[in-house]
Computed example of a mutant assay.
Amino acid sequence: MLDRSLRAALSGPLEAVAAALDRPFLTPDRLTVAGLVLGLASAGAAAAQWWAAAVVLWLVSRVADGLDGALARRRRARGRGNDSEAGGFLDIAADFVVYGAGVFGVAWGASAAYGAPWWPFLLVLLTYYVNGTAFLAFSSIAERTGRQVDDGRSLSFLGRIAEGTETIAVHTLWLILPFWAWQIALVWSLFVAVSAVQRIVAGYRLLR
């Protein structure tokens, strides 16, 4: 829901940082992998109940995730980039791994520290699975049939109420408030479920 406006607001700062980081040894793919490693480290820190470290690692991993695309666009504009879609594929795969690991890490840590039940986190994972299936299937078929939704990302993304911005905010919130993590997860799973239904309906209508 907020991705488009946030991307517009952050495009300038991200491009400035990407310009500062634009060195031969630093590639967009390496930034993607750095974001993946940091995201997994955040999940591990959450499982170990190192909540402050988990928050910092999570936020830094998402900054790296935003910078990889900015650096790739900068290099393509200057004729130095690679037109391969491999980077976009790596980026979305890394996001799925980090989001899933983040849910697992918080569930483990909150359960050990506060006796939080696991089922709200399992609901989150289920709704993530349905959401991912809907928008990845739509993107694949839309590409083949020439019905892409072009918003500058690698995939045709059906934006709805639960997007990347909201996901980052919720994952940050339950790391800051781990004693309320399962309640946050329960509410979040409802939002993601509504978003999944919206994507399935919208995707079906667009492809008819």
Rank of each mutant, 00 (worst) to 15 (best):
9 A>P: 03
11 S>K: 13
14 L>N: 13
15 E>Y: 10
19 A>K: 11
21 L>C: 11
21 L>W: 12
23 R>G: 02
24 P>L: 13
24 P>G: 06
27 T>E: 02
28 P>E: 02
33 V>N: 02
36 L>V: 14
37 V>Q: 07
44 G>D: 03
47 A>L: 01
55 V>E: 02
57 L>A: 06
58 W>S: 03
59 L>F: 03
61 S>A: 15
62 R>P: 05
63 V>P: 01
63 V>K: 01
66 G>T: 11
68 D>L: 05
69 G>T: 10
78 R>T: 04
79 G>L: 05
79 G>E: 08
80 R>M: 06
82 N>H: 10
85 E>S: 13
87 G>Q: 07
88 G>T: 12
89 F>D: 02
92 I>K: 06
95 D>L: 07
98 V>N: 05
99 Y>W: 05
103 V>Q: 06
113 A>K: 05
119 W>L: 10
121 F>N: 05
121 F>E: 10
124 V>N: 02
126 L>V: 15
132 G>R: 00
139 S>V: 09
139 S>D: 15
139 S>Y: 05
141 I>S: 09
143 E>N: 10
146 G>F: 06
146 G>L: 02
148 Q>Y: 03
157 F>R: 01
157 F>K: 00
174 W>C: 08
180 W>S: 12
183 Q>M: 14
193 A>Q: 04
198 Q>H: 13
201 V>I: 11
204 Y>C: 04
207 L>S: 03
